[in-house]
Simulated assay, not measured.
Amino acid sequence: MTHPLPLRVIAVSGGLQQPSKAAVLAEYLSDLIAAEVPCEQHLVELGQLAPHFAGAVRRAQLPGPVEAALSAVEQADVLVVATPVYRGSYTGLFKHFFDFIDQDALVDTPVLLAATGGSDRHALMIDHQLRPLFSFFQARTLPLGVYATDRDFAGQSLHNVELIQRAKLAVERALPVLQLSRHAGIRPAGKVAVA
């Protein structure tokens, strides 16, 4: 009897700071998924990769670590993306990274959207900026996004009960899509299982 493959959950943080609240949020959401569905988790921190690709204009110019991160995203069964809000949108580095992604690589890939910002006034960025970006890729953006402000963190962990409940609800709402893909043994076209 064959068992469904574990889902490859790739979390991408657009945070430029070290440590990054976006990375903390992305990992937290990835861990919530892992608590419900067998998966392999990997975090891509764009702030660490920035020196290697910020000036590149073609994918062929990119060094190995950046190419490996792009390939991981393209082969993901599930994406968790989190970015700080900068001037009302995702960071330029976040967009630059996704500009290198093959435009057909994320078709039907479930994407859990998240963002961090200094105040609540940027919360709609998830629906006004992130959702259209991943719609271009024909990805399957999951129903609920998760937006966190600075006050939702205590050091490098989430502490706001309402935010934690929102994160859990976002994953609960995503589970039917994730479990269906896993139990059906489905990998979107062009995505092969890595041995």
Rank of each mutant, 00 (worst) to 15 (best):
R59G: 10
I126Y: 09
V111T: 04
R182T: 00
Q17W: 07
I126S: 01
S135I: 04
F153N: 02
R8K: 11
V44I: 14
A170H: 08
G47T: 06
D150V: 15
S71W: 12
G118R: 03
P65C: 11
L112H: 02
L49N: 05
R140W: 13
E74N: 07
G118M: 04
L25R: 03
L144I: 11
I164Q: 12
T116W: 08
L180N: 12
Q138S: 14
K21E: 00
A193F: 10
P63H: 10
F100S: 05
S30I: 09
D102W: 09
D99A: 03
D127Y: 12
A174E: 00
L133M: 15
L29D: 00
A154L: 15
P6T: 09
A72C: 06
V73A: 03
L133Q: 09
V66L: 05
R140E: 14
L169P: 01
H52Q: 11
F136K: 07
T83E: 01
V171R: 01
S71R: 15
A69K: 02
F97T: 04
I164A: 12
L144P: 03
V171Y: 06
K21H: 13
D108S: 14
C39V: 10
A170S: 12
R8M: 06
A68P: 00
Y147Q: 01
L144S: 08
P38V: 06
A26C: 09
L144R: 15
H3R: 15
H159I: 08
V24M: 06
A34E: 08
R8Y: 05
A60R: 13
L79F: 09
V107C: 08
L70H: 06
L93K: 02
R59V: 10
V81C: 08
L112Y: 08
R121H: 13
D152P: 04
L178T: 03
H96A: 03
L133K: 02
V66I: 07
T2K: 14
V161D: 13
A148I: 08
G15T: 08
L178Q: 00
P63I: 06
H128D: 13
L163N: 01
G92N: 09
A193R: 13
L158P: 01
L163M: 08
R58W: 13
D99P: 06
P65Q: 10
V44S: 01
V24S: 00
A68F: 07
F137H: 06
R58E: 13
Q41G: 07
V146K: 00
D152N: 10
A60S: 14
H128P: 01
L16V: 08
D31V: 14
G117T: 03
H159V: 04
A54W: 14
E27T: 14
L130R: 00
L16G: 14
P110F: 03
S30V: 07
E172M: 12
A23W: 05
